[in-house]
């Protein structure tokens, strides 16, 4: 139930910010009856209403002992860590180039998931980065990110 209360607060915040930003949508001479702001305003109001109902229902419902069994899932700091590794790939690819960024990505994710650094894991990362580079850059002809660091 606490999760529902928390999520309803987040939804309310999203609805508020979305509504606030939608008031900045410029007007147009081609505007129709509804206009570009029409749907966003309706969506913001509807989301706020749904969020209030979810929150109210969570307050009024007695917590169930034990609760429903949930899927096995990673603790949130661990999940955020995986996300941060993915996010770090973007500047890494931009500065170091595709191949090096991928080599780092595979090494760090494998280490983060419990694999110890060894010659074997280094070879897997090396092989993986080269495989993806060959697949995308050579075989598919994709213009992969080039290293800005090396000019």
């Amino acid at each position: 139930m606490r999760k529902d209360i928390f999520s309803s607060a987040i939804l309310l915040a999203i609805a508020g910010v979305y509504y606030w930003v939608s008031t900045d949508i410029p007007t147009s001479t081609l505007e129709d009856e509804v206009g570009p702001r029409g749907l966003p305003v309706v969506l913001a109001i509807l989301l706020a209403m749904v969020a209030v109902v979810i929150g109210t229902r969570a307050f009024m419902t007695a917590p169930v002992a034990g609760g429903a069994p949930e899927d096995v899932e990673a603790p949130w700091p661990r999940a955020m860590g995986m996300w941060l590794i993915g996010a770090a790939y973007i500047p890494a690819a931009d500065f170091l180039g595709y191949w090096i960024a991928l080599l780092l990505l595979i090494s760090v994710v494998a280490f983060y998931e419990g694999m110890k650094f060894s010659w074997r894991s280094a070879l897997v990362a090396l092989g993986g980065a080269t495989f993806f580079w060959l697949l995308f850059s050579v075989l598919l002809g994709v213009r992969v990110p080039e290293a800005r660091l090396f000019g």
Partner: peptide
Amino acid sequence: KPYRSAFILALILSGVYTVHMSLFDV
């Protein structure tokens, strides 16, 4: 599993980039 996860993430990020060749999409 560590290798599987690493390769899946590499595939996601590489595959998405190929659509518009943009890190913004990533």
